[in-house]
Design a protein around this nucleic acid. Structure first.
Lengths: 150, 150
DNA sequence: CTCCAATTGCGTCGCAATCGCAATAACGCC
DNA sequence: GGCGTTATTGCGATTGCGACGCAATTGGAG
């Protein structure tokens, strides 16, 4: 299992003319197995668990590099910290659970299309966009007047 | 012209039980006449032009206060800095011209509705949302292959 | 005019992110 | 395998935005 990931990482580095260093290996390995949307500090925490010598500056540098190469995407949600995810084939937007911080991905072709329309109507073309919906779990339908207990 | 603005400001302060101080008068006056979406530093720059003694900390404090009172909205676009605008009656989203930094407001009921749908479909209710479309002016239709001149 | 709490200005802090630089380590070459 | 070159790293310091503590100032009610 680590095998395929390893070769992916090696290939990625080769393709972009980057040295396959220890820090890079670990950081990319952690990234690839992260399905959530961790921030740099959280990533550093996970990386440190594997090799505590890796500096957070290196995490930031690697993250920026991978973003520049198009391997990663960086999102800055309302809490301020930047969070990362590996670029996937298809664009998507985010639902953010304000109670837990969890992120759910979604995609709406209809919204995408409407955005295009709006931009064009204003004489623009879209470079990029971001749509974040901050949400809270729906109360389960209750028999009586539900009251959230403190 | 300064008159009506002045009374607006005075009224705002009264309504919220705030002292009508010199700094406040200037900051609010600058805010009311700003149609763009300035950040705190830019606001401070403008305020300083009127009274250079006003500290940026006061600008931040006033901005936060006004946001808490619902008079202002704070947006954090992709560049990181928070930008402010006076709250208007109706929610809107933003088109941001990446070449100039200019901001255009728009609203799409259809997009709003779709968001509701999506959130509900995932078992959430919307607390808040933000949609920013980063755009670039459409090339004017040209006769020949248009080339943006440097 | 007086008094006192609200407000301000200044300096400092906190946090995320970046940077400069000396030390280290990939990797092409032999 | 050993070498030399140069990218990369770790460290500490720094930046930039924003917030805060505190002493000095100042609205504005009486």
């Amino acid at each position: 299992m680590t095998n395929s990931a390893n070769s992916d990482i090696a290939r990625l580095c080769k393709e972009h003319g980057l040295r396959l260093t220890g820090a890079r290996k670990i950081i990319m390995q952690v990234l690839l197995k992260s399905n959530d949307h961790p921030d740099a500090v959280e990533l550093h925490r996970r990386v440190s668990k594997i090799d505590s010598r890796v500096a957070i500056a290196t995490v930031y540098r690697t993250l920026n590099m991978l973003r520049d190469k198009g391997v990663l995407e960086r999102h800055t949600f309302a809490d301020g910290r930047a969070r990362y995810e590996t670029t996937d084939n298809e664009h998507h937007d985010h639902l953010i659970n304000v109670e837990t911080g969890d992120v759910v991905e979604f995609r709406s072709d209809e919204i995408e299309r409407l955005q295009e329309e709006i931009a064009r109507a204003h004489g623009f073309e879209i470079v990029n966009h971001r749509l974040e919906i901050y949400v809270r779990p729906l109360e389960k339908p209750q028999r009586r007047a539900g009251r959230a207990k403190a």
